[in-house]
Amino acid sequence: MVNADLLTAPPPAETPLPGVALDLRHISHEYRLKGEPLPVLDDVSLTAVPGEFVALLGPSGCGKSTLLRLVAGLEPPTAGELLVDDAPVTGPDPSRVVVFQDPTLYPWRTVWRNAALGLEARGLLRQQKHRVDEALAVVGLDGFASAFPHQLSGGMAQRAALARALVNEPRLLILDEPLGKLDSLTRIAMQGELVRLWQAKGFTTLLVTHDVEEALLLATRVVVFSPRPARIRAEIKVDLPYPRHRDDPKLVELRRDVLGLLGVGDATQ
């Protein structure tokens, strides 16, 4: 679906903005549940160099998504320091865009107007309409600009959400299990598209997933978390060339290691 020309063409004259550097220092976070503190993140330290694709892997409900909310600036951490390009994160910023597990498209807006949301919110829509069209073309939705979200399939809706993020030319793309609810064929197709987009645009990517294979197929580095409160249990460098194949013996081997780290190694043997 991804427009191949746009992606394989050499970088345009105005080179895409490079990704940001991430520096998370001793981040801890807790929620209050009926007055009781509920720790979700425990002393998490993590860095990412510009353009890196980091997958955060852990059991469901361990607090990975919370970490993304903190990086996005939607909430301040209870403790610790969060630096993006050496500047502390104080709030949301359109250079760090989140794609959520649910597409969360606004049902009262057409696909085009959904994708235009970021530009409209910043008052840039009038001058930069073409960026909306371009983003929709990149995700292969240019024929659906005037459709309403309820007319889209799950995969198309998630593509629209991706376009809404890409319009802002993010320097950090934060993916919160964006493929979690898609059927397996759509999922495989979109995994490939994500990698190609990331390679073409050069943004830093944080991906939360609980799918080991997905993490290994997409990321340059996989960070494995413990159950809640999330602690970093291991970091695995995945230096396999793209496009990767799920039956590559090296990948299968890594997969076994990671499953072992997650405590379910035996179940799959």
Partner: peptide
């Protein structure tokens, strides 16, 4: 989540 989406895209309270 509708608010979170808009906030990460740079929306101000008025928006």
């Amino acid at each position: 989540d509708f608010y979170d989406v808009a906030r990460t895209l740079g929306a101000k309270p008025r928006f």
